[in-house]
Design a binder for these strands. Structure first.
Lengths: 134, 134, 134, 134
DNA sequence: GTGGTCTAGACCACG
DNA sequence: GTGGTCTAGACCACC
């Protein structure tokens, strides 16, 4: 279910974090669902249990998943995010970087905005585009 | 001119790369303009010359700047980017990550698209918005 | 009567121990009173009997409750605690940790002392505040 | 400087976290001061570098320390804590547990309040007792 | 069975 | 020299 690229520069544990966030956003994992055990996921990803553990720990810190002692790890009930200005700042920095990268690949605003929409659709279907006629 | 945050998790040399790309996109640096020497920039940024060197090397690898033996480093003439599928893939991965982060910050598609447009305007004025009525 | 939070990081058996201590301090359970059987309590708390068993064992080790063969488990007669230096040391360590946590939450001494008093009142009414005019 | 009890049930990495918080509160470590490197501290504590790393990572998450790439780890400038209700709740739970423990050691409110004050003085001198005559 | 902690030892990017 | 990541393998508390 989760794709790991061992050659990527983004750490494996972070790829797992991203992968799980993605599965949740795609509704493949729903609140209350049990995640594979650390060992299980480690063996399916052919990675080290510690690495999976680190990913789970980070997701738990973000309140995205929660562990029930001795029972396993589960997707949390939908939570209400609190918007922190400082995080938004880092989001804008990321956006800026993407714009710069795109520019030097010959991708202009219209095309990038399109890529953004495409990614959204790919991630969560068209359901998010409430304000538009598609 | 370039803002370095020593506490940031993005490497300093990359912050320099981003900073220079940004200056070029903003037309503060134009093709043919001379960049400060490695030592000069290192001292104005109070950073290690090796770090600046690495940034320049990366920019040169991208053909964004070029060094003329004994004369210095200059912004390259406007170049025709070739779109490489593999790079586009990484761009989409970055977009995906941003979408996920935004989602868990309570930021939906409309708002994120808005932030993207804002970042564009901040970087290069409205000149890029050719196709729209603003 | 006892509140169990499966998501908490404190073990369930310990939450039970705390809960029973609390009931006793609040005089809801008095010396001589019979506790529910292990199975009974396990089913009301929807937890594992082994877990309740462990809690009872710990409470018995502390002489707070006692089991009478074939009759059940009972709250012990008021006991005369012996102050053990080593336990006081661990109490002070706990206090130290609380002070540090509080400090990094922006809570100063006065406020923390106040919270302590509040917790006391909540646990046992004002009866303990003999030396003060409240 | 930091005392590690390998036999304690609180994890080593957490003892390190507590120890460093304590050193800061005692003004033995001040904002801007450099912490020993991970390897250094690991060797002085005769523990594993990973364990120290975990402690540092947690302290960084709390904004108490920060790492400068390639330079080391430093105590952050004094930060403004934001009070979160949920954290206060957990603080009160901790207080409740302490009260119960103390009660079964024969320690009443007055004595516990006294221990609290003592711990404060030990940690930060009397400077915090602004509102009292000592 | 579950996750959490720890060790020993290795490699890498960064400055 | 700095911290960050990863592996392999072990032990433990909890349910």
């Amino acid at each position: 279910m989760i794709n790991i690229d061992a050659r990527s520069s983004t750490p494996i544990y972070e790829q797992i974090v991203i992968g799980i966030k993605e599965l949740i956003l795609k509704n493949i994992l729903s609140p209350g669902d049990k995640l594979p055990s650390v060992r299980e996921m480690a063996s399916t990803l052919t990675t080290n249990p510690n690495t999976v553990s680190k990913a789970y720990a980070e997701l738990e810190r973000m309140r995205i998943i929660e562990t029930l002692r001795g029972k396993g790890t589960f997707v949390s009930a939908a939570f209400t995010p609190k918007i922190e200005d400082e995080k938004i700042q880092s989001l804008q920095d990321d956006l800026k970087k993407i714009i710069l990268d795109a520019h030097y690949m010959g991708i202009d605003y219209d095309k990038l905005a399109d890529l953004l929409k495409q990614s959204y659709i790919e991630l969560s279907g068209k359901k998010f585009l409430r304000g538009e006629q598609n």
